[in-house]
Design a protein around this nucleic acid. Structure first.
Lengths: 299, 299
DNA sequence: TTGATACGATAAGTTTTACCTATGGCTGGC
DNA sequence: GCCAGCCATAGGTAAAACTTATCGTATCAA
């Protein structure tokens, strides 16, 4: 024997409230016989009568009186659950596990958290900082919901949305400030300081200079952009910086910043998530909110 | 658009638990396409996906994770309400989901089923065999109605009713049959064969011998009492058996059974259920019917 | 790369269920 | 005794839910 249904409970509640099958049926927008049958079925399922049908009146049995408040609780809980569903439609709420690559995280996170706090109240942002391959793997494993990294991710199972494009700038010792800006070919012959293996920014820099990334490298690799700039300040060479890092990293270093006039190297920062993630729409809104961020720093 | 039904919630809960449509469909006793359609319909009603279907895996969306505990609460409340109805009969009828620990089930079940068939016609007995911690958890989750295990359960939310106390007996190779019965201290120094980690009977045996259960164990653990007795018969050591297992397990094995004269180790087998279960009165009657069982075997 | 496999979605057909209208049967009041 | 009010029953219909068979796609091994 199957259990009762929510419909049974709604009909029961209606009869209990009206103490009248006909009016209760109206309230339920069904016919009186249909209601009678459903109540009868409910009583049969429970194995106990719920109502006492006197010829002129309908009243709850003792068991019906115990049943009614519990039934109302359940109906209330289902209504609440429906509301929960509705409330979650429009905008992303709850946990968002977001991966960010190391050459973006320190410069973007403060404004990002601030921005999302404004545009997405109720969002529980959980940040993980890792290099691209690991972020991609964790996305595919379902351990991240989305990631911010340099496009393209070269991963067909992910959706990519570009947030903004940013230039690379040249950072060199202050003593070189009045030198002409070297071409990318010249750069390859200079003492170019790079991030460690695995950073996509390292690969992008090498690509710009037309250097094979597999070529053995004789320089000292830095583990962060901050280290690289300090090394440049100490006269150990030159480096490239992504635009968003410039202000923070060159503030207190004895280095000169120069922008390329032509063929400026750039990278495209984007947000990615699984194609199969049904929150695509909401994630797109998050991305949209984040794409306004670089504007707020350009001054 | 009509709201969701309890059936929707049950199906949802099943898929959420199994993370697999096929297995979930089996559990619900319907076909996989029917389940897929119902889940799809539920998602449409809610206006939000509940599951993320990767080709190889099914996982809850963030909303699904918020939805699941509430859905379970509602299902639990409906089960309680059904139980309330059954509590108004004076004898338990309908489904009884009963958990039994492995060192009791094989020896008690046949008589138990027979006894309840007599004393409780109309009872639909569903047995699950698991070790104590899991049974307790499933009781608390509302996935079991009652369990038979060794007392105490150390769980304040459960009611415990003792069914009977049974002795442990010593089982050793037939060649040792005329040896004196060792003390519990002696036992600890002999080659004592034990059940695997997790069985309460293992812990009770160790406690009797004053052995720390955290102590690394050099013996081979058996996965059933039957295996242990076979190992004893093969001369690999000695073991203890609960009384109810003796007749069945030593019948065809080349072992000697000895009872302890003094300080006999025992365990208290009892039935437990949630304090909040409205069927307490009826379950007490079931326990009472079961407590007569050991008498019928004592000959 | 290709073929096998696993798994959820889709399609077509059938059974079950919930409902409608019409009617029956009981009760209390006029 | 007849009428009015009310719930139950009967017969028929349309929607819902389920079945089996099949498809599409992703994964994995050869």
């Amino acid at each position: 024997m199957a259990g009762f249904t929510l419909k049974h409970l709604r009909y029961f509640e209606s009869v209990a409230r009206e103490a009248h099958f006909g009016r209760a049926a109206d309230r339920c927008a069904i016919s009186q016989p249909a209601l009678s049958m459903q109540i009868k079925e409910l009583e049969q399922i429970l194995g106990t009568p719920l109502f006492e049908r006197n010829s002129r009146a309908v009243s709850l049995t003792q068991f019906g009186q115990a049943f009614a408040p519990r039934a109302r609780e359940i109906l209330q809980a289902t209504d609440d659950l429906s509301d929960l569903a509705r409330a979650s439609q429009d905008q992303l709420i709850g946990r968002l596990r977001l991966g960010v690559i190391p050459t973006v995280a320190p410069y973007m996170l403060p404004r990002m958290i601030h921005q999302l706090g404004q545009s997405h109240p109720g969002l529980d942002l959980q940040i993980r900082e890792s290099m691209t391959p690991r972020l991609v793997q964790e996305l595919k494993d379902g351990r991240l919901d989305a990631a911010i990294l340099a496009l393209p991710s070269a991963e067909p199972s992910l959706i990519e949305v570009s947030l903004f494009t940013e230039d690379f700038v040249l950072v060199r010792p202050m003593s070189d400030a009045d030198q002409p800006i070297p071409s990318s070919e010249k750069l390859a012959e200079m003492h170019l300081l790079l991030l460690e293996e695995g950073h996509c920014f390292r690969d992008q820099t090498l690509a710009f200079c037309n250097i094979q990334s597999t070529r053995p490298w004789d320089g000292f690799d830095g583990s962060s952009l901050s280290t690289l700039v300090q090394m440049v300040g100490a006269g150990m060479g030159i480096t490239l910086l992504p635009d968003m890092a410039v202000k923070v990293e060159t503030r207190s270093a004895n280095v000169a910043v120069a922008r390329f006039a032509d063929h400026t190297p750039t990278r495209d920062i984007g947000m990615v998530w699984r194609k199969s993630n049904p929150l695509g729409l909401q994630l797109r809104k998050v991305a949209s909110a984040l794409s306004t961020l670089p504007d707020s720093q350009n001054n």
